[in-house]
């Protein structure tokens, strides 16, 4: 067991963890943050995407001990985030989810895209989602929603 400290969704957290515990399991089992979903545990599905120090991160491929001293933001920590709010609203309007299991990872991944590229083309959106599996929607609604959110953020940069 190792004691770790991190800033988690804006607040300091100190916990003892087993060294082999993944960041995803730490978030879900130790911190009760269950928006981070586990769809494969080998980095291929994207459902566990979170933000670590501003970097898009697969929480299944980081051990919690590796995040000692870092800033971790899960979807729960993005409630006041204007890009995420725009995305959530657009996902709702564009029927971008069915079962919803992939949605947290999609939102975190889409936010990362829009922060780097505020006006992505459809091809760029699809490319950014190439590592996120959705089994229900066939992606059309998700791709559309991200384009809608990008438009909204460009048209109303400070409204959210």
């Amino acid at each position: 067991m190792t004691k770790i400290r991190m800033t988690l969704n804006g607040a300091p957290v100190v916990r003892e963890v087993e060294d082999r515990t993944s960041l995803a399991d730490f978030l879900r089992e130790e911190c009760g943050l269950t928006a981070t979903h586990l769809g494969c545990e080998h980095g291929a599905c994207g459902a566990c995407s979170v933000d670590v120090d501003g970097l898009l991160t697969r929480a299944c491929l980081k051990f919690a001990v590796q995040c000692d001293g870092r800033t971790v933001t899960t979807l729960e920590g993005l409630n006041q985030d204007r890009v995420t709010e725009a995305l959530r609203d657009a996902f709702h309007r564009a029927h971008a989810l069915q079962c919803g299991f992939c949605t947290p990872g999609m939102l975190v991944t889409a936010r990362d895209l829009l922060l780097r590229n505020p006006q992505p083309s459809e091809a760029e959106i699809r490319d950014a989602l190439a590592g996120n599996i959705c089994r229900c929607t066939g992606y059309a609604g998700i791709v559309h929603a991200i384009a809608l959110a990008a438009d909204e953020l460009i048209r109303h940069p400070r409204s959210l």
């Binding site: 980095g43 994207g46 995407s49 970097l55 898009l56 991160t57 697969r58 491929l61 980081k62 991944t109 990362d112 895209l113 950014a128 190439a130 590592g131 996120n132």
Partner: peptide, 9 residues
């Protein structure tokens, strides 16, 4: 290479 999240690390 792979996906952006993989490339970040």
């Amino acid at each position: 290479i792979a996906y952006r999240a993989i490339r970040c690390h």
